[in-house]
């Protein structure tokens, strides 16, 4: 009998993401917000210094959070704590791993540190989640070792349109590959810039090998349920909660909406009297360098 424990295996990394399915992961900047999120039923929190809406307003270079903030949030809640590193910034990732963070988001919301290369996520025992705007991008990230994928959406806007675009792109391309004859898989892999073996796997399974969450612009229970009905496995909510009028109430309503996403009468009930939603931004008013979804490749 094999007495050995194997830590940081692919099954353990992708398995935690599977346990988050049907749940809501909330951005928090203080231990108090983390507590509110946990009490509202969040399955995990994302520990940040600034939510994306504030990063947009304040500008400048956005980096990994102060480890002190992350520690305090870890000490406050029992649910998994995630944190963001910059795209390609493997030293920020090493620091987060040494803090025993539960998941790292290699995120376009922060200012990229490398314009060509993402982190080699296979070399870490902590699992990573990465954003994707289409299937090729999702499979490149999985090829690098991401154990969870999310839409990029357009963070900090309170506008769900980009998340919908990215979700439909990924799910639509999966359907196409599933229906394709085998001999077309290699040229599809070439065209998409995706690893061939992963394209073959999509062809066989008809789904991603990891869970796929919605992120970027989700602001209401209806937004969250929309992403679930489109086929996402769960939802990240960033600025949408703590930039709204009544965060605890809205957080709870979004958790409830995700658990009963296909019951409109329930969605109506949970959406009542939530106070002010965050003020949204129309994506078309953003200049190109304000668009976070275009970061990474």
């Amino acid at each position: 009998m094999n007495e050995k424990r194997i830590e940081g295996s692919w099954d353990a990394k992708s398995g935690l993401a599977r346990m988050l399915k049907g749940g809501v992961i909330m951005d928090v900047v203080t231990p108090e917000q983390a507590r509110i999120a946990q009490d509202a039923g969040a399955v995990a929190v994302m520990a940040l210094e600034r939510v994306p809406a504030d990063i947009r307003i304040e500008g400048g270079v956005a980096r990994m959070s102060d480890p002190g903030i992350i520690r305090r949030i870890q000490e406050t809640v029992d649910i998994p704590v995630m944190a963001k590193c910059r795209i390609g910034h493997f030293v920020e990732a090493q620091i987060l791993e040494s803090l025993e963070i539960d998941y790292i988001d290699e995120s376009e919301v922060l200012t990229p540190a490398d314009e060509n290369n993402h982190v080699d996520k296979h070399s870490f025992s902590v699992p990573f989640v990465c954003g994707a705007t289409n299937l090729g991008e999702a499979l490149r990230r999985i090829g690098e070792g991401a154990a969870m994928i999310r839409t990029k959406g357009e963070a900090g806007t309170g506008n769900v349109v980009e998340a919908v675009r990215h979700a439909r792109a990924v799910l639509g391309e999966i359907k196409q590959i599933k229906a394709m004859p085998r001999e077309e898989l290699m040229s599809t892999a070439k065209y998409m810039g995706a690893p061939y073996d992963l394209v073959c796997r999509i062809h066989e399974d008809g789904c991603l090998p990891v869970v796929n969450f919605a992120a970027g612009g989700v602001a209401t229970p209806a937004d969250a349920a929309l992403m679930m009905q489109l086929g996402m496995d769960g939802v990240f909510v960033g600025s949408g909660i703590f930039k709204s009028g009544e965060p605890a109430k809205r957080a709870r309503a979004i958790v409830e909406a995700v658990s009963r996403f296909d019951a409109p009468e329930v969605l109506a009930e949970v959406s009542m009297n939530l106070g002010e939603a965050m003020v949204g931004i129309n994506i078309s008013t953003l200049s190109e360098d304000e668009r976070m979804a275009d970061r990474g490749w």
Binding site: M1, A12, E100, Y103
Partner: peptide, 25 residues
């Protein structure tokens, strides 16, 4: 925490073969 999540084979009463125990947090 998650970095300590592990897989280990277990002897389970009632099963003949070791079972892959995947422990996640």
């Amino acid at each position: 925490r998650q970095t300590r999540s592990f897989i280990r084979y277990l002897n389970i009463k009632g099963l003949d073969a070791p079972f892959p125990g995947l422990f996640i947090r």
